[in-house]
Design a protein around this nucleic acid. Structure first.
Lengths: 127, 127
DNA sequence: CCATTATATTCCTATATGGGAATATGTCAA
DNA sequence: TTGACATATTCCCATATAGGAATATAATGG
């Protein structure tokens, strides 16, 4: 069974770092021609076209013709699905920071309070 | 050239929907045994184990042994890299909403102001 | 001690992919 | 009109993968 296709959803489309780089360039808000992305990112033109094809198929970018130029523009709202998902884990960032602080303080207290054998809590055995 | 491995980074690990589901279950904060995930998600046990292996290798989960049980717990801070990346596009969500509003208002004004031929701005030609 | 339970891992398979290389297609300018 | 330019697409290839099926390994309890 194959892996989910890159065009399955936004998550799969952005998994490839090169495609994230392309999105990052378009973040300025200005539409870019393929050639500009090629020059800017130092990625071969056919590769850029292929990546843009993926991005277009999931809706992250839109394209418009201007003569022989193809201008690609970001639809950043499509990235909201990723944001909405990862946002649900946001509370963990700050909680974890608090925990790191507590741990550091606990260690400092132990160092000051006990210069001899320290009884350790039973820790979970790592695999 | 193969696609980036699922264990390359967090982005690739979470591209697979089933792995996001596993992460979602662990979001409650409580460690889960493999069997619980199997029952809860209705995914075959070997598949769950494989997905957990990926998640563990990129650091998103940690595992501890309790007899014959393997308890998996979320390291949500690893998801921060995704959040940090997609956060840079956050301003677009609200901007786009403003733009939708402006467009609606402009249309309403045109409907009231001109009952006859309306001169349209030249729009970009879609591909 | 042995059957049961929990889970990791192996083998297999069809599929998709990202870049290299090459080419096809469309537009422009002299 | 034709060569140049811009870009999409095709062909090729080695690789990784997710689930099915099966199995190996470790821990538990009667």
């Amino acid at each position: 069974m194959p892996r989910a296709a890159t065009t399955t959803d936004v998550f799969n489309a952005i998994a490839e770092p090169r495609r994230r780089e392309i999105i990052d360039v378009l973040r300025g808000g200005r539409a870019h021609a393929v050639g500009e992305l090629v020059t800017r990112l130092r990625i071969p033109q056919p590769a850029v076209s292929k990546h843009l094809s993926v991005l277009r198929r999931v809706g992250i970018v839109s394209v418009s013709k201007h003569g022989r130029h193809r201008l690609y523009r970001l639809n950043a709202e499509e990235l909201k699905s990723v944001h909405d998902w990862v946002k649900t884990y946001e509370r963990f960032w700050t909680d974890q920071l608090d925990r790191i602080k507590e741990r550091a303080e606990r260690k400092a207290a132990e160092r000051l309070g006990h210069k001899s054998r320290v009884v350790r809590d039973e820790e979970e055995k790592p695999c």
